[in-house]
Write a protein that binds this DNA or RNA. Structure first.
Length: 258
DNA sequence: ATGGCTACGATCCGTAGA
């Protein structure tokens, strides 16, 4: 079973790239963030034509999440009460899938930073219950936290900044402490592996990036995980998202492809 | 000098992202 996540930074703009990627990668589950679409404008027909069902929670201009799956999506939940469309959960083939778009935080010490840390605390509390109900649980998405210095292209330049500050990293670790593993770090990986690169200053060409998109797996799924990788190919396309997909393979029964 | 790019919704500038 192949599961994936991608912050598409506008599904309207990235829909052709998403459809191409689905056709090539054939994931069983695909989590999307920053769709930036009201639900009435979600491209249901195009997604279904590609062989996927979808559940989505969107709003105009900002945020917005979706889960696509080849199999049926059941027990859909938007998690804890919140003002933004940042969280969606569904069960696919007995796998509990949680799609998250964690707040950016803007700048350390700002109001949005406090909001980010409070949101992570709520996410942790909600995930603790979710994990108790669903032992086979995966959390995929844009966490907006680079967990360690090796997830940062220039740790000295970023020290103490947004996405790497110690309170943010502690908030991320608190999720792992629930009994979740960062799938990417279950395997040897290339040095300087990132999932996001700034549009400015030729960030991608300089590989000036951060690894802020992650896949977290509960113990049974971590043991079943055979691979996790970042697919940089979409970042090389014309008019790319600033994020690129992250993919994990699970050796579990699934009715989908792969 | 502290931006540089992209998307969006408001109008050819401000907000937000990371």
């Amino acid at each position: 079973m192949k599961i994936a996540t991608w912050n598409v930074n506008s599904l309207k703009v990235r829909l052709p790239q998403l459809l191409d990627w689905l056709a090539q990668a054939k994931p069983d589950v695909m989590c999307l963030q920053e769709t930036k679409l009201e639900d009435a404008r979600f491209p249901v027909a195009e997604i279904e034509a590609a062989g996927y069902r979808a559940v989505f929670a969107g709003q105009k201009t900002y945020n917005g999440v979706a889960i696509l799956a080849a199999a049926s999506l059941e027990a859909v939940s938007s998690g804890f009460p919140q003002e933004h469309k940042r969280l969606l959960a569904a069960t696919v083939d007995g796998l509990r899938v949680v799609c998250v778009y964690c707040p950016n935080g803007q700048a350390v010490g700002s109001e949005k930073y406090a909001y980010k840390l409070a949101w992570f605390a709520q996410l942790r509390d909600w995930l603790r219950d979710e994990l108790a109900r669903h032992p086979r649980l995966a959390v995929l998405g844009d966490f907006n936290v680079a967990p360690e210095d090796r997830d940062v292209h220039d740790p000295a330049a970023w020290e103490g900044q947004i996405h790497v500050s110690p309170p943010e990293r502690a908030a991320f670790r608190a999720l792992l402490d629930l009994g979740l593993a960062d799938a990417f770090r279950l395997f040897p990986q290339p040095e300087k592996s990132f999932s996001w690169w700034d549009y400015r200053r030729m960030g991608f060409r300089r590989n000036a990036g951060l690894r802020i998109d992650e896949i977290l797996l509960s113990d049974p799924l971590a043991r079943a995980c055979t691979a996790c990788a970042i697919d940089k190919a979409p970042r090389k396309l014309e008019r790319p998202s600033d994020h690129t997909p992250v993919v994990a393979e699970l050796n579990v029964a699934g009715t989908g492809s792969a």
